[in-house]
Design a protein around this nucleic acid. Structure first.
Lengths: 200, 200
DNA sequence: GCAGGTTCTGACCGATCGGTCAATTAGCGT
DNA sequence: ACGCTAATTGACCGATCGGTCAGAACCTGC
């Protein structure tokens, strides 16, 4: 075997393909992304893609696994934590995951329910656990909807909704994170020193 | 021609196919929905589908056009209107469209950017006009994000997010609409008699 | 230059895709 | 009963799908 300590060029093709594939998966969907298109767009042949990745599904797994793992980590911390600031902290960390892995999250959050793959099941299980945890801390329906809108709104804004903002682009990630943190925190604290109409 | 005033059975097959197709499009995506699967699921042959609809794309158009038209109508009213309650009214009407046409909205809102079809272009243009209108009423970035989270959150909750709530199902549509109206109205009125930290 | 491994590719496979077409069946007016 | 039209279907087409395989090209240590 060659010098396995310097796999710089070894790894570049695989990473390049993974990156191109993830971009395709997020933009046009997994089913609509053909290995031929991915290979063409990356400057390789279809056979090369299947050399680096055993199958189209393996390519998807390699592309989104880090994002799934990080989301799971955020979820575990949330479930283990205890205190008044749990939810706000969760939302902030979810926003960070979204900003860092928006393409991958777009894949397993939007197309997730339709794909029957192990890595997708992992991701869906995590999302479901989060949904169940929120639902089981049984509070008013309004509270759950508030939470769902906050998380779903952030997810939509940073993944699918981005496609519609080409004319008036969104601000850079740093500003976006700050604004999202404050808006979502505000959304999740319905009675933080001020009163609203308590309709529930 | 037969009695064209009693097309009850004439129209049923086409409507049935349209309904099944829409359900498939929303659940697994347009690209992943084959005419064969749609036909099997509806109890017809693939040829029958292509008899009632000239092509797979025509089937999609027939399935989502009413939703697109209604969304356009809501948007037109919003653009023509003037007054302080515009935004809240828009959000309420968008929620109604989402509740009534959630599968169709799921298709053109989530998979929209990836499909290259006239009806999808119409829908995307409408969504883009809405996004541009919000961005051009240039206020703070926080205001725009608040709006995006509200609309995107409602859209996500009622379309893609629904897949994850199987364990703890969402309430029925009537209650959901009421709760969404109040939560989103609250989200869109950042200074409605109470003060927040004005970070912008 | 040679050997051995890695990387890359074209040819090819069976399956399925969207779509066409001719033929059959069913329903209604006369 | 007949004839016309709408409705439905199976056979078939070219294209593309994901995937296999044998070999060419490339790099490296000797």
């Amino acid at each position: 075997m060659p010098t396995d300590a310097i796999p710089t060029i070894r790894v570049r093709a695989a990473d390049e393909l993974k990156h191109v594939a993830l971009e395709q998966f997020a933009r046009v969907g997994f089913a609509a992304s053909s290995l031929q298109h991915i290979a063409d767009h990356a400057g390789y042949s279809k056979s090369s893609v299947l050399y680096h990745y055993a199958s189209k599904e393996a390519l998807l797994e390699a592309a989104i696994e880090p994002a799934v793992a990080e989301f799971e980590s955020v979820l575990e911390d949330f479930l283990a934590e205890r205190g008044s600031g749990r939810r706000r902290l969760l939302v902030e960390r979810v926003v960070d995951v979204l900003l860092e892995h928006r393409e991958a999250v777009h894949v397993f959050l939007i197309q997730g329910p339709s794909l029957d793959l192990p890595i997708i099941h992992r991701a869906n299980a995590a999302v479901r656990r989060l949904a169940a945890a929120i639902a089981e801390e049984r509070e008013s329906v309004a509270e759950q909807v508030r939470f769902g809108v906050a998380l779903g709104g952030a997810a939509f804004l940073l993944t699918a909704g981005r496609s519609f903002a080409d004319e008036h682009p969104l601000p850079d990630d740093d500003e976006l994170r700050e604004v999202l943190h404050s808006v979502l925190a505000e959304l999740l604290t319905p009675a933080d020193g001020c009163r609203r109409n308590t309709d529930d």
